[in-house]
């Protein structure tokens, strides 16, 4: 077959539409250009979703707050020892959100706390996704005994109350930031795994997977090139929703006193307020603002997640 010259002996096949692409020099580079175009088409659809746009704007504001905000808060503002305010001061022009029992500005606490809350949210989501996608794909793709085992594990994690598991783990591992992240990840991957497994099961039966095998591709090749790209959209929409859930989980753990005592997070602020009796004493400024922040951030991510889901999943269904 080497002796053959590739010159055409028949007329070129007609293409319906001569795609307005410049003949590429490096196919892979233009492949990326092509992907960028797909992304911009996606953005166009996303922009049409009002819910998605509101969520996105809120999300960006929160992320900005978490990244930039803490730089504007002097360290002494949130330090127990050097706080300048009087304890339990209600909101005034100077202390916009009042002070806590150490005389720290609640506003400063919230700004600083946003960073930890979001870090925990994102990091725990990464853990969730890696675990969920890995276990889901392994379970769906390999099938058989692997699937039976992993599926049993997934179901086990789905049915046990996560909070009980989290409490046990937190008390064993100790309440550090990293442990909190791991705990949230470990207790919440199961839903993702189930979703991914279902998708992997259907993708695995597609003839193009068989084609890859007939070409000589091994399992890893098939997973990386065929299963994962087709499971990705499901994971993606799920990810954004998981961030919201992780932030909520962090709040819950902190509220229960299982948060990292050395770092300030929104859940932690509320927990301290509770312990100082803020609820009975009527120090509303200490509890409501962090609560509202949590509600808003969760709302923002949820709105984005639903908007993504609406765009991505009908496409999946249509195919």
């Amino acid at each position: 077959m080497q002796t053959l010259d590739p010159t055409p002996s028949e007329p070129p096949v007609l293409v319906g539409e001569p795609a307005n692409l410049v003949p590429p020099k490096s196919p892979r580079r233009i492949g990326w250009a092509r992907r960028r175009r797909a992304l911009s088409a996606f953005w166009k659809t996303y922009r049409r979703s009002r819910m998605g746009m509101v969520g996105l704007v809120m999300m960006i504001l929160f992320i900005l707050l978490a990244v930039v905000g803490p730089f504007f808060v002097p360290a002494k503002d949130v330090s127990v020892a050097f706080a300048t305010g009087k304890p339990f001061q209600p909101p005034t022009v100077h202390w916009l959100l009042g002070t806590d029992n150490f005389g720290r500005s609640v506003l400063s606490l919230i700004v600083v706390g946003s960073r930890i809350s979001l870090i925990v949210g994102f990091a725990a989501t990464v853990v969730t996704m890696v675990l969920g996608a890995g276990i889901g794909i392994a379970s769906g793709f390999y099938g058989g005994k692997t699937d039976t085992l992993l599926n049993a594990l997934t179901n086990w994690f789905l049915v046990i109350p996560w909070i009980a598991l989290a409490i046990v783990m937190a008390s064993i591992l100790g309440p550090t930031l990293l442990n909190i992240i791991l705990i949230i990840g470990i207790t919440s991957w199961a839903g993702t795994a189930r979703l991914v497994r279902a998708q992997a099961l259907t993708v695995k039966e597609r003839p193009y997977v068989e084609r890859a095998r007939a070409l000589g591709g091994g399992d890893l090749h098939t997973i990386a090139h065929h299963i994962l790209p087709n499971v990705m959209p499901v994971i993606f929409a799920n990810t954004v929703l998981t961030v919201a859930l992780s932030i909520l989980a962090e709040t819950t753990l902190s509220l229960l006193g299982l948060g990292d005592p050395n770092s300030i997070s929104w859940g932690g602020i509320i927990n301290e307020a509770f312990q100082a009796g803020a609820l009975s004493a009527g120090y509303w400024w200490w509890i409501i603002p962090p609560g509202v922040m949590i509600v808003l951030v969760v709302l923002a991510f949820t709105m984005c997640g639903y908007a993504l889901d609406e765009i991505i999943n009908p496409r999946l269904r249509a195919r």
Binding site: E10, V13, V15, P18, A19, L21, P23, I30, G31
Partner: peptide, 11 residues
């Protein structure tokens, strides 16, 4: 029989 081939690369 897909000629010119470059035209099909990115489809």
């Amino acid at each position: 029989g897909l000629r010119p081939p470059e035209r099909f690369y990115l489809l």
